[in-house]
Every structure is written in structure tokens, then in C-alpha cells.
Design a binder for these strands. Structure first.
Lengths: 161, 161
DNA sequence: CTCCTAAGATTGAAGCTTCAAGTATCATAC
DNA sequence: GTATGATACTTGAAGCTTCAATCTTAGGAG
């Protein structure tokens, strides 16, 4: 515990928090619904493929990919197994290292190219169509601030709240 | 599809989107980790209990609770079953209606009271400690704008992207 | 060279969410 | 009163994520 009385959030923070919770709950669900329907993929699976498609040589070490995709190594490993079964990704040992690459296959690249347009349309429809240019900048600024604090907070919190 | 060429996101939107995706992926994971460790609850379970604790008579019809908790009725029903097994909630038929109430028990209320302080500390640590007053207001504004557009977008999107 | 440690990744079980199908109850029409 | 339909909720199975344990291999110490 930080102090004696358990300082509550003030009114403004309370409202901001509720709306943030709603966003982090509803938006992923909406993204998954569209992805599932149009591409038989979770949004996370798509994101992994998309990150790989932009990497040099369309390959990335698993631990690096996990970081870029905001996931635990375990989660990523399971997902790579699933994507490999579908032929979109394969693993490749890295010489003189304990690591492995995840490599996007040509089929995987084609899948991303196929899937991207409907996904982008969805992102516009669910998010950007409601924001003007200034709000988009603000979103980026706030998002970055949140991530910075999140990383800091996780680092601190490794020893109980 | 909206038009001929699949209009991509511009650079600013792209950056904003990446940071938003990171937030909606990492923040829930961090909240769940703390909740699991300190209260043996998922963040969603806690949120359901918290919403109930603020409702008149600490009760809400399931469909209304689902809406307030940003969840599908199915998800909520499973969760209520789990919470009921632990004695924190019970169901109660609504006379002359097809609906049911979810009612927070005294034990359930006590659980919320016990759990809230560490949760609030976590929210401060992961989010608000990194934001000044103005940014909190901005967060609330942007969050609300996102939710508005999300609802609109989902309504539109019920017939393919 | 051999042992030891730890980094990188995998795995299986348990738990949560979703999806689709099912049940029950109320309102309406005949 | 009895169909019909729709609303509110429940349920079981399938799939995804997490957690903890495990495996494998690289890098040092002796």
C-alpha cells in the first residue's frame, strides 16, 4: 500500500478511467469479431503476421517478435504453432544462438495482403472516422504517454502494489 | 469495401493506431496480473463486482449489467455463475418479467472493499502517475470520442466491412 | 574438456471467452 | 385459450491464454 488512506481517484480520473476501461474491453472484441468473420483469424494472429511482413527478410527472432506484438513468449509460441500448421509461418533455428526465427512464408505474406484492406476499413470505421486530425495527434500523444507509464509502472510493481 | 483502392492509414494515423493497439493489449494484461496476484480475480470479475456495488440496492438486471460491464450476455452469465459459486453474487428472478437480477451479497461487497485499494493503487501506478491534469481531461475526451465512434462503427458494420 | 548456469523457447493443464444452440417466459394475434 | 414470435438468459463445446514446469543449448569457471 502506498500510504495510510487509500487515496481514491478524483472525479475526472474516475471518468477517464471508466472510458479507458470501456475502450480496452470493447475495441479488442470488435476487432476480433471482424477478423474472425472476414479472415478466420484473431486480431492478434493478424497482428503477428503484419509485424513479420514489415520486418527485414520477413523474419524476426521469437523473443523480439513477442515484444513487438505485445505478448508473452508463451502466447506467441502457441500462436506461431497454429500459424505454422496453416502454412503461413515457419520456425528457423538461428546459427550460433539459442534463438529461433519466425519466418513469414509466401502464403503468409499473401494472407496479410488479402486481409489488410478489410482490416484497415474496419479500423477507420471503428476509430478514425470519428476523429479529426488534431484528435489523431492527441491520441498518439496520449497513447505514448500511457505506454511509457505502463512500462514504468510494471517495472515498479514487480514487488507488490 | 468502401472504394476502389484500399485507402491506407496516413503516417499519423498509423502511429496512433500502433500505440492504441499496444495499450489495448498490454494494459488488460497488466490489470489481470495484479488482480490475479492480489485478489485471485480477473479484472473483469472485479469490474462486475464493482459495478454491482454502485448500483441501487447493489443489484442490476443481467442484460443491464452486461451493457455496463462492456460484455456479452453469455460472458456475463458464465462469470456470474463463477462468482455465485464463491458466494459473492446471487441471481434473483424479477417478478412479471423474463429477466433476472444479479445481486451482490454482503460477502461480495466485502470482497470489493478489500480489493479496491490495491486496485486503485495499481491504476494510479500504471496510468495516472504518468499524466498531468490536462492529459487526464484529454484522455477522457478522446476515450469518449472513441466509444462514440466504436458504437457507430459497430452499428454500421453489421453488414460486412 | 566438463560442469554449471541461465537464456530462449516449448509444452500441457487449467481457466476464461466465444459461438451456436437451447430453454423459458412474456406479448400479441387469432 | 392457444399458437406465434420475440426477449432474456443458459449451456456445452471449441478455441485461446496463462501459468508453471520443462527442455535445450550457449557461455563461463575450473
Amino acid at each position: 500500500m502506498s500510504s495510510d488512506e487509500p487515496r481514491w481517484l478524483d472525479d475526472r480520473q474516475q471518468k477517464a478511467w471508466r472510458s479507458l476501461v470501456a475502450v480496452i474491453t470493447r475495441l479488442p472484441a470488435a476487432l476480433d469479431t471482424q477478423m474472425q468473420r472476414d479472415a478466420d483469424l484473431t486480431h492478434f494472429e493478424y497482428f503477428v503476421l503484419a509485424v513479420l511482413s514489415e520486418a527485414p527478410e520477413r523474419r524476426l527472432q521469437l523473443s523480439a517478435l513477442a515484444e513487438d506484438a505485445n505478448a508473452s513468449l508463451s502466447r506467441l509460441s502457441h500462436v506461431i504453432t497454429r500459424l505454422a500448421k496453416r502454412g503461413w509461418v515457419c520456425r528457423e533455428a538461428i546459427p550460433h544462438s539459442r534463438g529461433s526465427y519466425a519466418v513469414l512464408t509466401d502464403d503468409g505474406y499473401a494472407k496479410v495482403v488479402d486481409t489488410a484492406p478489410a482490416h484497415v476499413d474496419t479500423v477507420r470505421r471503428l476509430v478514425f472516422d470519428g476523429l479529426d486530425n488534431e484528435q489523431v495527434s492527441t491520441l498518439e500523444t496520449i497513447g505514448t504517454a500511457l505506454l511509457t507509464q505502463l512500462d514504468k509502472g510494471i517495472a515498479e510493481g514487480t514487488g507488490k502494489a
